[in-house]
């Protein structure tokens, strides 16, 4: 599995989404499950999947699928 696949599947798993949903458009509070509780679940799952530790700025900035990719890239995850 590529990092990008792993990244997308984390969103699907945490937010219980099927393949009909385009995960790349997801934003905080854009779907019912991505509320503050869902957000903390997402953070924990991403930290585990990529073996990284988010800082407070990362956690409060991770407001969309795209933003999350930028943050992980900064932490050394290669999406290419």
């Amino acid at each position: 599995m590529t990092n990008l696949e792993k990244y997308s599947s984390t969103y699907k798993k945490v937010f219980e989404l099927d393949d009909s949903i385009d995960v790349t458009t997801l934003t905080f509070q854009g779907i019912p499950l991505w509320d503050s509780i869902g957000h903390m679940n997402l953070i924990a799952s991403l930290e585990e999947a990529f073996n990284v530790q988010f800082e407070i700025d990362d956690i409060i900035d991770l407001s969309s699928y795209e933003k999350g990719k930028e943050i992980l890239t900064k932490l050394g995850v290669d999406f290419n």
């Binding site: 905080f28 503050s36 957000h39 903390m40 956690i59 409060i60 900035d61 407001s63």
Partner: peptide, 9 residues
């Protein structure tokens, strides 16, 4: 805002 949003802080 939720406390996990930058806007809150």
């Amino acid at each position: 805002y939720s406390i996990i949003q930058r806007e809150f802080w």
